[in-house]
Design a protein around this nucleic acid. Sequence first.
DNA 1: GTCGCTCTTCTACGAAGTGTAGAACACAAA
DNA 2: TTTGTGTTCTACACTTCGTAGAAGAGCGAC
Lengths: 130, 130
Amino acid sequence: MAQLGDLERSIMDALWASDAPLTATELQDTLEAGSAGVSGKQLAVTTVLTVLSRLEHKGLVTRDRSVRPHLYRASSSHADHTAELMHEILGASSDRSEVLARFLGQVSPEEAATLRGLLDSPPRDSGLSA
Amino acid sequence: MAQLGDLERSIMDALWASDAPLTATELQDTLEAGSAGVSGKQLAVTTVLTVLSRLEHKGLVTRDRSVRPHLYRASSSHADHTAELMHEILGASSDRSEVLARFLGQVSPEEAATLRGLLDSPPRDSGLSA
DNA sequence: GTCGCTCTTCTACGAAGTGTAGAACACAAA
DNA sequence: TTTGTGTTCTACACTTCGTAGAAGAGCGAC
């Protein structure tokens, strides 16, 4: 799955931040607003569309072609995606326990508490909406 | 920090697997042996050196220039590196708790047990040898 | 001291991925 | 059918990575 480029990430962030699916033009506006400040430079819509196609190809974005301005949305929630990435990295390791130990060693007390809570509470569920 | 290429990863793996620092030539041999089987093709030493330089530039490898055949070793342990990567990804997320929840949702029972154990035991130590 | 060997640095190139966007095409409304 | 908006095709420059030759540097042998 690998890492994303800057623009790809920006677009994914915009999609993740939006409840409803977005059109390319809407994304274009969102991106301009997001990177606001000094630049104010707007990307060409084709640029946004190209990146969206690439993201769709990578499986990160799904597109609704049934409506005319196509609608784009993230295939999975940001949290899901991030968690998957973390697992991918963990899975590539030979010594999972050791990695987990290090991971916890770097975790903040708050996060440790969160983890404890999560481990105690029923671990059996998935598909919660973000 | 980002992700590594195939050869870069192979070299890091070799360094991580070795107790002592290695020279470029030793790494060259190790890589040949590691990828053994059908290929048997050996990389040019310069290739190994180039990649080592790049890895040094990225901070993943440190080099001892005081001895003649320079000695190369991984800057941090494999587990440390992996854990750092996981934190990097987690840190880039806006909703850490949600990500952690998803992460745990995908974790195997064994790993969950490991985590529980780690969270219960004194979290205060670092620098364990891999 | 300089010859030669080994190791390192410089330089380079091709492939892949990414940011960027124009040109051309498709489709619906007027 | 024309027109405007949205999508696809194509393209190019830049970066990263795998790959390695050519040239330079240091050290031991003679």
